[in-house]
């Protein structure tokens, strides 16, 4: 199986503090991976580094064989925690924006998902609730036919019904060569779709396993194992 994301001895310091410490990671194509850890464990830092929103202090990241840059941005679909939507466009306009900048963007898919979630493409982004904005962002990201999806807390702000639809969308929308990495601490909600898990704690990877391994070897759910590993 070929690798889509590789981290070699990746370290990121803020001031004198290590946010990530010597992280080695190898993620194959075609997997759904949960990046799990408590608040402040380095999940967002890792994802931002992959998107060139931060520069590593040392070590390196390779995505599809390239360091983060123009080439990787073309194949990575990123959902940040923040709402990045501006206040002057309509939904249909931001869809055109994505279509303009990403050649792998599928507008049909986007309009279809908007319809399913009852969002009017003519609505202004400005007037939307926070939850609706999150849905729009997720639709924009999942409408790309990317090779790597990096979703930072994708379900945090939406209601449980939409949560189910979104998770189904994630599973059904990506092709078998693409990898999805989700960061979250809401494990029980997403456990059913995960194939691999990465536990991260205080900037270090403490465990990487497939979900099947956890169930077979430990006889536990991911949620139960998480509670054990990160016991306060």
């Amino acid at each position: 199986m070929s690798t889509i994301l590789e981290c070699k001895n990746l370290t990121k310091k803020f001031g004198g503090k290590n946010a990530l410490e010597a992280v080695d990671l190898n993620i194959s194509r075609g997997r759904i991976v949960g990046l799990l850890g408590p608040n402040g464990s380095g999940k967002t830092t890792l994802i931002k580094l992959c998107n060139e929103l931060l520069t590593p202090t040392s070590g390196e990241i390779l995505i599809g064989g390239y360091h983060p840059g123009i080439k990787t941005k073309k194949i990575v679909a990123y959902l940040p925690e923040n709402t990045y939507l501006n206040d002057w466009m309509k939904v249909s306009e931001i869809i055109n924006f994505f279509k303009d900048f990403y050649t792998d963007f599928n507008s049909e898919k986007a309009f279809d998902m908007l319809k399913r979630l009852n969002i009017d493409p003519q609505d202004k982004l400005k007037t939307m609730s926070k939850g609706t904005k999150e849905k729009v962002q997720l639709i924009l990201v999942m409408s790309r036919e990317a090779q790597l999806y990096l979703l930072d807390e994708p379900i945090g702000g939406v209601d449980p019904a939409a949560r189910d639809y979104i998770l189904d969308t994630i599973i059904s929308n990506y092709n078998e060569n693409a990898t999805v990495i989700l960061s979250t601490h809401l494990i029980s909600d997403i456990e059913r779709i995960l194939e691999d898990i990465i536990f991260i704690k205080e900037g270090q990877i403490v465990l990487t396993k497939t979900v099947d391994e956890i169930r077979d070897e430990e006889g536990k759910s991911v949620d139960a194992l998480f509670r054990e590993v990160f016991k306060c």
């Binding site: 998107n51 060139e52 929103l53 123009i70 080439k71 941005k73 073309k74 990575v76 990123y78 940040p80 923040n82 709402t83 990045y84 939507l85 501006n86 900048f101 990403y102």
Partner: peptide, 17 residues
Amino acid sequence: KNLLGDEGYLMFTLPVH
């Protein structure tokens, strides 16, 4: 706002130098 605020998350992940 557009580059260094929240919108920067979108602008800097576009495949643009």
